[in-house]
Write a protein that binds this DNA or RNA. Structure first.
Length: 153
DNA sequence: GCCAACGTTGGC
DNA sequence: GCCAACGTTGGC
């Protein structure tokens, strides 16, 4: 039973095209530093699908689909002093943060946040909850299908 | 750049 | 364990 997710990234930092152009179109989804989001990362299974969401940009919204190709493992950036995501409190023998590997699947016609908000069928989507800032969000099967249909329309 | 919402930190 | 202060997120 595959689950569905939504992963946020600022396109200035790392866009859906950046992912597509990576070797093998694969990249570690590292740098998540929120416990709730981390726990969702840890719940992901190989083969799960995720929306690529562009945030903090002129046109925030869903822009593509990727697949989880490696389950959660210790995020190496927490031990990297040179990384912006370095965490001095993380210990090698007890890693604090996790990441998964994702693989680009396909781009979608942009589904803007405003359209997501306007869709009655998407009520309850965690992304749309007031004040929701999580960068890793579970998406129900029904919501997943509905957003795919919006992109294909 | 503003600001609301939320998470984290740290003093007590 | 409470809670104020602070930092971050992210839409606008």
């Amino acid at each position: 039973m595959t689950a569905h997710w939504l992963l946020k990234s600022e396109p200035d930092e790392f866009s859906v095209d950046d992912l597509r152009r990576r070797p093998g179109s694969t990249e570690p989804w590292s740098g998540v530093r929120n416990f709730q989001a981390r726990n969702f990362l840890r719940a992901m299974k190989k083969g799960d699908l995720a929306f690529f969401y562009h945030s903090s940009c002129p046109e925030p919204g869903v822009v593509g689909i990727m697949e989880i190709v490696r389950q959660a493992y210790p995020d190496p950036t927490q031990f990297d002093r040179k990384s912006a995501y370095f965490d001095a409190s993380a210990r090698k023998e007890a890693p604090k943060w996790s990441c998964v590997d994702v693989e680009f699947k396909r781009k979608l016609k942009l589904v803007p946040l405003s359209d997501l908000r306007a869709a009655k069928a998407l009520q309850g989507l965690k992304l749309l909850m007031p004040g929701s800032r999580l960068s890793v969000i579970p998406v129900s099967n029904a919501h997943w299908r509905h957003i795919c249909a919006m992109a294909d329309a």
